[in-house]
């Protein structure tokens, strides 16, 4: 079966078993190894990618369901050559990353969450991270960084807003 979808902004055609989990195609065919296959059960979140803008586990996504979809991986968020996503930059600045295994998934889950919930409070941020396990248990620093990042974003928009008045 042939499945066509967009992967990090480029057209991609897959011809093989439609029940292949997306994570395997990303890692083994495209060498997009930022997406991690850790539990393969939907519990850890290390394989999170965006499908049509929504953060979902790629280990449980059969590629056959992706026909016509837009898939973005951590590599698609920023290639590293250009400016990082603000959340990636904030994590780097706050030195929030320990071993880094969970971070691609954290960034994919939380970047979509921040886009949809710019006014989120600490408890809401924690609820959004429920499906992302950090084995180094650096949770509080991650939450602190998201709070700071949202504050900075709010201040920037308010300043821009007042300048427009």
């Amino acid at each position: 079966m042939t499945v066509t979808f967009r992967l990090n902004g480029e057209d991609y055609r897959f011809r093989d078993d439609p029940m292949t989990p997306l994570v395997d195609i990303l890692r083994q065919e495209h060498f997009l190894t930022g997406t991690k296959a850790v539990c393969r059960e939907g519990f850890c979140g290390a394989c999170t990618v965006h499908v049509d803008g929504e953060a979902v586990p790629s280990c449980l996504k059969p590629v056959g369901l992706l026909h016509g979809c837009e898939v973005t991986t951590i590599e698609g968020l920023s290639s590293g050559q250009e400016a990082l996503h603000p959340l990636q930059a904030a994590f780097e600045a706050a030195d929030a990353v320990q071993c880094g295994m969970c971070f691609p998934g954290m960034v994919m889950s939380l970047s979509a969450f921040m886009r949809d919930n710019p006014g989120a409070c600490r408890a809401e941020i924690k609820s959004a991270m429920v499906g992302n396990i950090c084995r180094c248990t650096g949770y509080e620093r991650i939450v602190d960084t998201v709070v700071d990042c949202l504050d900075t974003h709010r201040q920037t928009t308010e300043t821009a807003g007042s300048m427009n008045v």
């Binding site: 939907g42 519990f43 979140g45 999170t48 929504e54 953060a55 979902v56 586990p57 449980l60 996504k61 889950s109 969450f113 609820s127 959004a128 429920v130 499906g131």
Partner: peptide, 9 residues
């Protein structure tokens, strides 16, 4: 139920 990523799917 479950976690946010699973609930979206």
């Amino acid at each position: 139920a479950a976690n946010p990523g699973i609930r979206r799917v």
